[in-house]
């Protein structure tokens, strides 16, 4: 079996990147920011639970929601299947590839051997597109890698059937039919409302804008959770990695969201959204200041209470600004 001709592109984020690539391949010219924005995926959540080895935060809604929310809003018929049996999952994947259909699959990132070992971690909701099978290996388009890569068949099967939180259960997905006329205006409005709801209205104290404030309050406790100074330094520097490099497009998805708002302004013919896009870009710059500050104090081991208070104040500023921005966005649509 050979590979399908597939236009591989890197993307900021694995799920929106995989879905954008699949839609583009099926003939729908959408961008990654549009897919991300229509799905209303912008989010903030601060978590200190046994699932994570240290308190952490997330910047997008639950994995799988990009697909689940964006497709109905675009009217795209999208097939998603999960499996109990690894053999059946592999068979289904091979059948689709033989038909010339590139297939999105959910995997544990830990098993993506083409990524340097130091950068791999167990995360069950990584999304890739399988575009071919050559003997004992699959040909893979992964948004985080510059070119097409291969992964042994057994390794992909392992990655699709791990247990644990967000277990992939062999999940695969692909678009079945693209409608001839898509109501982008309605889809964009719903996406913006959704993101505004995520950030302003979820009545849980560690989610949305409340979550950013919660993070700011809890930061002072971080030294008590760390094994030693080296560990605290590592976790502070991880703030930079999570905001800038873990599939966000920089500034904790805010730059990507600014790009979405710029496109939304054209689609809805609303100049106010173009202004809000500029403000979101500036907001992203301030998030980037947070990530650079975290990296610097972590590297210099300059992690005393005063520095953590400074970082906390920067977070509170973001909470205030995002509360203002999302209220304006909510009323604009």
């Amino acid at each position: 079996m050979s590979s399908i001709t597939f236009d591989h592109k890197m993307a900021a984020h694995c799920e929106s990147g995989a879905i954008t690539a699949l839609l583009n391949h099926a003939g729908l010219a959408v961008t990654e920011p549009l897919v991300f924005g229509i799905s209303g995926s912008l989010f903030f959540g601060y978590f200190h639970t046994a699932l994570f080895p240290f308190p952490t935060f997330v910047l997008r809604n639950k994995p799988g929601r990009v697909r689940a929310k964006c497709m109905p809003r675009l009217g795209v018929k999208f097939q998603s299947s999960s499996f109990r049996s690894p053999a059946a999952a592999t068979q289904a994947l091979d059948t689709l590839l033989a038909r010339g259909t590139p297939v999105g699959v959910q995997v544990d990132f830990f098993y993506m051997d083409y990524v340097p070992e130091y950068a791999r971690a167990h995360f069950n909701a990584h999304y890739i597109v399988v575009v071919g099978r050559e003997d004992d290996a699959y040909v893979i388009s992964d948004s985080y890698v510059p070119g097409l890569v291969t992964l042994p068949v057994a390794r992909l099967q392992e990655a699709r059937f791990v247990k644990g939180p967000l277990a992939p259960k062999g999940t695969l997905f692909y678009p079945r039919a693209i409608p001839p006329d898509i109501d982008l205006r309605s889809a964009v409005r719903k996406g913006i409302k959704d993101a505004a709801f995520n950030m302003l209205s979820i009545p849980i104290p560690f989610l949305g804008v409340k979550g950013i404030r919660h993070f700011a309050r809890k930061l002072g406790d971080w030294p008590t959770f760390a094994r030693d100074d080296e560990h605290l330094s590592h976790e502070l520097m991880m703030i930079n990695v999570i905001l800038e490099e873990r599939g966000t497009g920089g500034g904790g998805f805010r730059f990507l969201y600014a790009s979405f708002l710029q496109q939304a302004a054209d689609i809805l013919d609303q100049p106010e959204l173009a202004e809000l896009a500029r403000e979101m870009m500036t907001n992203g710059d301030r998030w980037r200041d947070i990530s650079l500050f975290s990296a610097r104090i972590g590297k210099n081991r300059d992690m005393g209470p005063n520095r953590l208070r400074e970082l906390s104040a920067m977070l509170l500023d973001r909470a205030a600004e995002e509360e203002r921005l999302f209220k304006r966005l909510r009323s604009a649509v």
Binding site: M10, A11, A12, P33, G249, G250, S259, M281
Partner: peptide, 15 residues
């Protein structure tokens, strides 16, 4: 390598 969203010379935002 990774993708960042940035402001281009023509003031558009893109990857």
């Amino acid at each position: 390598r990774l993708v960042m969203y940035v402001e281009k010379d023509d003031a558009s935002y893109g990857p």
